[in-house]
């Protein structure tokens, strides 16, 4: 289907990055010098979600700039399935631990999933080392909903159990609403609707009383929905999320931000075996965030620049610890064994 003269899907990824690369390379002698030894070929990225989705766009934008510092192409492979476990277990697990194989996951939902269902691999086999963004969960209703504020919802939730749409139970946004219920005494019944598309539909069509989802997705739906609460320390998108308050501000709680967080992970063995290579990866990864070309690419791909948020190994570890703790706390509810 390659029509002559037009970029194809994978060539596009490589091409756009190559153009970006030409501009910035000379000014980064460190990256250049190290790149002679590593990498000497393309870096493969396993993406455990489907092609054309949010992770895909996010990855295109990021690797397009990262490429010029790492001086190599990225070859993404999309292996969705079993909430990301196919990507980790069937594909990443079989790849060589040589720093040429990365996985681009979503820390929040993945870690929660591992809490509720122990995977067949040892979760210490992989390390998240590069966080790209943090997208907080939010509470939203359809444009026609009678609920105008989060207080309306809490008040109603004290009278009857409200049905809440969510993309899946083991999701940071689901935890957020459970925590709200715990704090206020309102009753919520989480209904997993398999995916963001159905979750938005559930709220818009009124089958659910309201829904919870990552706020980036909700903001993109414009006037079809209305956001009422954000599970973060600050509503970074302001107007685009209808100036909704944050849970901690509004209710005086101290809930850690309930984030979806896309991040690169690597085999732990690769870091131990090739510390030099890993250093190149980690250093060049960080450089992307200060590159002036990155923001326009994110904005062009309709991403939320406010959610772009660098994090290294330590930040990722701290985040994982939070998620594991809170996941354990709500585990009985999430596994139906309460």
């Amino acid at each position: 289907m390659a029509i002559p003269g037009t970029p194809t899907r994978r060539a596009f990824l490589k091409g756009s990055a190559a153009a970006a690369g030409a501009a910035g390379l000379a000014s980064h002698p460190l990256a250049f010098a190290l790149a002679e030894a590593f990498p000497s070929r393309n870096v493969n990225v396993v993406v455990p979600t489907r092609e054309g989705g949010g992770a895909d766009r996010n990855l295109r934008a990021f690797t397009g700039v990262w490429k010029k510092y790492l001086k190599t192409n990225f070859e993404p492979g999309f292996y969705p399935g079993a909430s990301g476990r196919v990507g980790y277990e069937v594909y990443m697990g079989k790849r060589k631990a040589d720093c040429y194989n990365l996985i681009f996951g979503n820390m929040g939902p993945e870690l929660l999933n591992w809490v509720v269902q122990k995977p067949t691999f040892d979760i210490n086999d992989y390390v998240y080392f590069g966080r790209v963004d943090t997208d907080p969960g939010c509470v939203f209703v359809g444009a026609k909903s009678p609920f105008k504020s989060i207080d309306d919802i809490v008040a109603e939730g004290k009278k009857r159990k409200l049905n809440v749409g969510t993309s899946r139970l083991a999701h940071p946004a689901s935890i957020g609403i459970l925590a709200l219920g715990e704090h206020t005494g309102a009753q919520f019944n989480l209904i997993p609707l398999s995916g963001g598309k159905n979750t938005v539909a559930g709220a818009v069509t009124g089958e659910m009383d309201f829904s919870v989802l990552t706020s980036g997705t909700v903001a993109a739906r414009g006037d079809a929905v209305r956001t009422l609460l954000v599970f973060n320390d600050k509503n970074l998108l302001g107007e685009r999320l209808d100036n909704a308050p944050t849970m901690n501000d509004h209710f005086g709680t101290s809930l850690p931000p309930m984030l979806s967080s896309r991040a690169f992970a690597i085999h732990t063995a690769a870091i131990e075996k090739y510390p030099d290579r890993f250093k190149v990866l980690a250093d060049t990864f960080k450089q992307v965030f200060t590159d002036p070309e990155y923001k326009p690419v994110v904005v062009k791909a309709k991403g939320n620049w406010e959610y772009i948020n660098y994090g290294g190994i330590e930040e990722c570890k701290a985040y994982a610890k939070d998620i594991f703790e809170i996941g354990e706390r709500f585990k009985p509810y999430l596994t139906g064994k309460s």
Partner: peptide, 20 residues
């Protein structure tokens, strides 16, 4: 495949490819 609520795998014969 996994059950639609709690995502427990069912009848997958151990194949992750059948979870969905």
């Amino acid at each position: 495949g996994a059950d639609h609520v709690y995502a427990t795998p069912r009848g997958t014969m151990g194949f992750l490819e059948l979870y969905d």
